[in-house]
């Protein structure tokens, strides 16, 4: 009897509006994308062509390149945000002057749109007149063409991505650091532990859950990133900074909807194939500790 009244207190229809939207605009497109990726598609009708789109995807060096660039980009940005985020979090959690100011400053770029950041850094990265190469010129260094050098463009955008996003990682690490009991540090300090030992044997292991969150969050967003790359390089020079998301857009613009959707399916598979094992690995390590 009680269970009946308890059930009606939390009616299932509360799940309907939100769940309905998720089914309509997430499940349906995702499920149908597997079929449409096997077709030549004009939105009005589709012709089944088997695996042709995937063959194109993995044989075309430009398209396959975008697949590799996506992985490289996700790795650079994730590692960068973990290292810089942890360093900044340790700095900001310590006793330091102007802490409030520093916190605000690190978080500022998170609020600016990717398009705004991209345009600004395009100007700052200008090979001749840009502020960065001017500053390097003052100390006698001949700055490279950050966005015009094919070997450098992807890494340059990744650096800007780290700059823009590190504030969120810093916050998560700060929350993780606060949870570590202070006595651990005090007793280790009394036992004569050096700063490095304290970091290596207390901070690093105990900040694990925060690290997992930061890594997984950044891997997911790194694998699907589009706006910064599109604003700063448009995938160029040539196709040297094209990633999956920019290829999906270019193929969509060209009206190759089947191929574009195949790019989407490749992206799902990559995201799932990386995040799920990564999550399991972190969880196992946590249990082991």
């Amino acid at each position: 009897m009680t269970s009946r009244s308890a059930r009606s207190r939390y009616p299932l229809w509360f799940l309907l509006p939100g769940g309905g939207l998720l089914v309509l605009l997430f499940v349906v497109p995702t499920a149908t994308s597997f079929y449409f990726s096997l077709t030549r598609w004009t939105l009005f009708d589709s012709t089944f062509i088997g695996l042709e789109n995937y063959v194109t995807f993995f044989q075309d060096p430009q398209l396959f390149g975008s697949f590799v660039h996506t992985l490289v980009y996700a790795v650079i940005t994730s590692v960068g945000k973990v290292v810089a985020g942890l360093a900044l979090a340790i700095l900001l959690n310590g006793r330091i002057i102007a802490r409030g100011y520093l916190r605000a400053v690190v978080f500022f770029p998170v609020l600016v749109s990717a398009v705004g950041v991209g345009i600004t850094f395009k100007v700052l990265f200008d090979p001749f007149d840009g502020l960065i190469n001017r500053a390097l010129g003052v100390v006698g260094v001949d700055g490279p063409g950050w966005l015009t050098n094919p070997d450098l463009a992807l890494a340059s955008v990744a650096m800007v991505d780290i700059w823009k996003g590190v504030g969120v990682s810093t916050l998560i690490f700060m929350a993780g650091l606060v949870a570590i009991p202070r006595d651990y540090y005090e007793s280790a300090h009394i036992d004569g532990g050096t700063d490095w030992q304290l970091f290596r044997f207390i901070t690093l292991p105990l900040v694990g859950p925060a690290t997992m969150t930061v890594v997984i969050l950044n891997v997911i967003s790194g694998l699907r990133s589009f706006e910064l790359i599109w604003t700063m390089t448009g995938g160029g020079p040539g196709f040297t900074s094209d990633v999956l998301a920019s290829v999906i857009y270019k193929k969509y613009q060209a009206g190759l909807y089947g191929l574009s959707t195949a790019g989407n399916v490749v992206m799902f598979v990559v995201v799932a194939a990386i995040t799920i094992p990564l999550y399991r690995w972190f969880r196992r390590r946590e249990v082991a500790q």
């Binding site: 299932l12 799940l15 769940g19 998720l22 089914v23 309509l24 605009l25 997430f26 499940v27 349906v28 497109p29 995702t30 149908t32 994308s33 449409f36 598609w41 939105l43 997911i220 694998l223 699907r224 999906i248 857009y249 969509y252 909807y257 574009s260 959707t261 989407n264 399916v265 992206m267 799902f268 995201v271 799932a272 995040t275």
Partner: peptide
Amino acid sequence: FTNAARMLVLAALIVPSAVVPTIWV
């Protein structure tokens, strides 16, 4: 149903949406 809803939410958090099929819908 609640378990299904929970799974759905997690999946949607991780998986990026498919662009052209969404336009089609």
